[in-house]
Computed example of a mutant assay.
Amino acid sequence: MQSQETLGILQSISGYRLGRARFVGITHYEQGDFLGPHADRSGADGAKAIAFSYCLAAPSYSEGHDDGALIYRRDHPEPDLALRPTAGSFIIFDVPRMGVHYVAPILRKSEARISLVGFYYFAED
């Protein structure tokens, strides 16, 4: 995640000059689990440029079910945006522009969403 090749690709996509990565950990959501509405913000540890989620396992999605989807709340009247990660997907978020979002509850037993999550900070001059 810190290789020059990876940083180069992420910098090209985001348009930001990136510095260090911080791995928050592995998230494991099973039936009934969710992450409530929140906004990723910069803190005392630095200015966050992008957040990432590398999905290791994902629920099977079907019409009308958002089990474990990342839901981005948009300003109304636009509907919320549901991102449904699949195993092996890598999702990045522009932290300064990203608003409130959450992980929808896992509703079905025997389904799980497991992801490696973290942040890249802006490069320090």
Rank of each mutant, 00 (worst) to 15 (best):
Y61V: 07
A82P: 01
F90G: 02
Y54M: 13
K109T: 11
S3V: 06
K109P: 08
G8I: 06
P59H: 03
T6R: 11
S110F: 10
G88C: 04
E124A: 12
I91P: 00
I106Q: 04
R84P: 02
A51I: 02
H76W: 15
G8R: 11
I106S: 09
A58M: 01
A44K: 13
G36A: 15
L70D: 03
L83C: 11
H76N: 14
R74G: 07
F23E: 15
Q2S: 15
Y120S: 00
L81I: 11
F90E: 02
G43S: 08
A58F: 02
G68A: 04
F23L: 15
Y102G: 01
P77F: 03
Y102H: 14
P96G: 06
L70M: 09
P96N: 04
G19W: 10
A123L: 09
G15P: 08
G68L: 04
H28T: 09
H65F: 12
D40L: 00
A112P: 00
G19A: 07
Q2F: 09
H101D: 02
R20T: 10
D45G: 02
R22T: 09
Y121W: 02
Q2C: 11
L83S: 12
R84M: 09
F119P: 07
E124N: 08
G32F: 04
S3H: 06
L10N: 06
G68I: 00
F23Y: 12
P105C: 05
G43E: 06
A21Q: 12
R97K: 12
Q4F: 11
S12K: 14
A47T: 15
S115Y: 03
S115G: 11
D67Q: 05
L35F: 15
Q2L: 14
A21F: 06
V24E: 14
A112L: 08
P96Y: 05
Y61S: 08
V100R: 05
H38P: 07
P79L: 10
S62F: 10
L116Q: 10
L107A: 13
R20D: 13
V103N: 07
A21M: 13
R74K: 09
Q31G: 06
Y102Q: 12
V103Y: 06
G19F: 10
S12F: 13
L10I: 04
P37H: 09
V117I: 13
A51W: 07
D40T: 00
S115L: 01
L10K: 05
L10M: 08
L116C: 12
G88R: 02
G15F: 06
R73V: 14
F122L: 06
R20C: 08
F52I: 04
L81H: 12
Y102I: 01
A69C: 07
F23P: 08
G46P: 07
